[in-house]
Amino acid sequence: MNGADTAWIMVALVLFMTLPGLALFYGGLVRARNVLSVFMQCFGIAALMSVLWLLLGYSIAFGGANGVWGGLGRVALLGVGPETLRGTLPVIAFFAFQMTFAVITPALILGAFVERVNFAFVMTFSGLWMLAVYAPVTHWIWGGGLMADGGIWGATGTRDFAGGIVVHETAALAALLLAVMIGPRRHRTTPPHSPGMVAMGAGMLWVGWFGFNGGSQLAADGGAAMAITVTHLSAAAASLSWAAWERIKFGRSSLVGIVTGTLAGILCQEAVVLIRERIGVDDTRDVFAVHGVGGIFGTVMIAVFGHGTWVAQLGALAVVGVYTLAVSWLLAKAVALVLPMRVDREAETNGLDLSTHGERAYDMNS
């Protein structure tokens, strides 16, 4: 065990990205009468994914059964003690770090259908999706599975340092699919109720990304320092480029725009326009345009710059994409047989805070 590596992994703030970062970012973008429902969905997913990761998810992702799935050898951390190591890290520290990725990935999907989705459907679908999509894909690429070095692509496997495929492609494709299946909001043109809340959430995502990317080095070394530095500079440059492009196109730069740019860039901004206005899909918080386009573009650029092979990068995008869409569709259809995807018209009009959770974020009469 390396003490420095272990300490770094244990303080990497990936959970901070979901709670409260993503909750505030998504919450500020919805109508005032739906903000608590977004918080509830984020907290509910964080809790449920953590328990499922312990019971099954970690074993499926990082067990050693075969190249397709990890098996059940590590169910409930069977055989893992404080001194059990994975590389220079205690397995329990590695487990906890990876658990935060299993939390944020299904939480990202929420942005596609907030303000109209049934809470019970969200929780049930998200739990099944993490086990059936996220965990197997994690095993294929990060867990020594069929797309890792020496797998189906040959000696040089798929390169995915911090989730361009495992996190962002899977979440974005599932989000786009569900946005289509659930249908658009009835109050689609309502502006964000709290841009300030959005900005605070984006700032937390920015800081949390240091742990997300730097922690993915799994060591306290120069590689982690490089990842943190590049993450910060990328976010800064993307923020400026998004704001500048807004200025060129619309004559002004918005707060919501610049903080969305923190997570993406001009290519993703154009993807927002394509999906929202030209194709007409109500991916409410632009999950596919921001996370999917950004993650896919980064994965391709690894091959462009010669750090991975074209076959491994494009092949992984294709296989994971088809698998994610197929399984996500089957899960959504299966869950919808028992639980409705969408709330009724009255509940959506009145807002999910009151109709689903019996609470209000604000005193509407004050």
Rank of each mutant, 00 (worst) to 15 (best):
A46L: 12
R276K: 08
V207W: 01
L146F: 14
T124I: 05
F62Q: 02
V319Y: 01
R33E: 07
I275M: 11
G87H: 09
V320E: 08
S194C: 03
V133L: 00
I228L: 02
G163V: 04
L29M: 15
G157L: 06
S50I: 03
G203A: 14
A361I: 04
A102D: 09
G265I: 05
V311P: 05
M341W: 03
S366Y: 12
N2R: 06
A120L: 13
I165M: 07
V293C: 05
D344F: 12
L255F: 15
W153A: 05
I266P: 13
L36C: 03
L337C: 09
S253K: 05
L354V: 02
A23V: 06
V300P: 08
L56A: 14
M123I: 04
Q269G: 06
F39H: 01
G214N: 02
G28K: 14
A225E: 04
G280E: 12
L177H: 01
V137K: 10
A224H: 02
P20T: 01
G163K: 06
G163N: 04
R278M: 12
W310R: 01
D344Q: 09
E115V: 12
A112S: 02
L24G: 03
L263Q: 15
F119A: 08
F212I: 03
D283G: 10
F101M: 09
F125E: 07
I279G: 07
S194R: 14
A227M: 01
G64L: 00
V293T: 15
G214M: 00
Q98N: 06
V35L: 03
L52W: 06
R276M: 11
T299Y: 07
M1Y: 07
C42G: 00
S366C: 15
D221P: 06
A236M: 03
I275C: 04
A227T: 00
L314T: 04
